[in-house]
Design a protein around this nucleic acid. Sequence first.
DNA 1: CAGAATCCAAGGGGATACTG
DNA 2: CAGTATCCCCTTGGATTCTG
Lengths: 137, 137
Amino acid sequence: MTTLTAQERRAEAARRYHAYLASCPARRLLDRIGDKWVTLVLSALADGPQRYSDLSRRIAGVSQKMLTQTLRSLERDGLVSRSVTPSVPVRVDYALTPLGTPLMPLLAHIKEWAEQHMDEVAAARAAYDRVTGAPAP
Amino acid sequence: MTTLTAQERRAEAARRYHAYLASCPARRLLDRIGDKWVTLVLSALADGPQRYSDLSRRIAGVSQKMLTQTLRSLERDGLVSRSVTPSVPVRVDYALTPLGTPLMPLLAHIKEWAEQHMDEVAAARAAYDRVTGAPAP
DNA sequence: CAGAATCCAAGGGGATACTG
DNA sequence: CAGTATCCCCTTGGATTCTG
């Protein structure tokens, strides 16, 4: 007999659901481009190959840790290539790959939607806060 | 004289950059749809209005806390409407608004891209891990 | 039924310092 | 120059309990 409490059944359902989400392509994509630095790095590289220090300057708000971590993850995903020139000091160039390039039109599409609709969202938010009386607790 | 150390100048640049990002429409949109439960709730509601308990069952992995919090934020953004029927016990229905509805084609577009390309990303990831010898530290 | 409130563990991410 | 390593804070989110 599988005697499970309601709690245990819910926990099991949640576990399965998480496994499902981990395999969902759309969710995986959103996890990547939802990352703050990922989109910024990709957008910067859309203008052409860049050195590490160039990226660091262009994306002024990023820490070295997050920049390196983001670049590593993008390299691992095959979206960005990393090429080292063994000079002194070393020079490292990053660039979009053939796999990463077709991502840019999608980002452009998202940006377009945002510029068309996000002001309405902002207005809705202001109206909501006016009614509830709370700007953002 | 504005005598600033290199650290102070970098900190100031980061501060400005964060302020810029907070006002960037595309970034704000990505922050929303990058949220795990937001997309799942919106997708569920795309099938028509749903009660709280319906959503809770359909999105099996979500806690009540996150479901409520997500619904509140979506209501605040004007993407979802909340209607209370004062019966006993109360009944609450959620639905996409005219502002939230046009978001669905965008999500469909993202999903389409993901299903076309995410397997290549997975392959790149596997190749990367094979070379580096690390499945995922 | 539809939440609100509280507690708490895990992880993300910044600041700093060091290196080949 | 292009990182790596470490510390540490603070947010995120799950579990639990209580209510109208």
